[in-house]
């Protein structure tokens, strides 16, 4: 299986670390809705067919990638940087000492 890293080009799957299902929606950091956190942590759609998932190019550029891959054939239809999706970093992830 090859993953076409947008930065490094096509690389063997052994360079990458699987980071799991991307169909889940992480609740807001400040949320205290336990059911939502439980669902995010434990419940999966377990897609048969095109599956949205996250990979880390741990043996390469270390970019987090958003990949669509068929769970029936392993064919990859899209790879993109996670950061391109314009998600704001939450306050909890900010480095200590860095001002908002």
């Amino acid at each position: 299986m090859l993953i076409n890293c947008p930065y490094c080009g096509p690389r063997d799957v052994s360079e990458f670390t699987y980071q799991g299902d991307d169909n889940r929606v992480r609740p807001d950091q400040a949320s205290t809705d336990q059911a939502a956190w439980n669902a995010y942590t434990y419940d999966r759609v377990n897609t048969m067919g095109d599956h949205k998932e996250l990979w880390l190019h741990s043996g390469g550029c270390r970019a987090h990638l958003r990949v669509t891959r068929s769970t029936l054939t392993h064919a990859i239809s899209s790879v993109a940087f996670v950061r391109d999706h314009g998600e704001k970093k939450s306050a909890a992830r900010r480095k200590p000492g860095v001002r908002a």
């Binding site: 299986m1 799957v13 699987y18 998932e53 891959r69």
Partner: peptide
């Protein structure tokens, strides 16, 4: 293998 799949075959690593 460590990724979601229903294909009854794995990869070489």
């Amino acid at each position: 293998d460590g990724y979601n799949t229903y294909a009854q075959r794995g990869n070489l690593p």
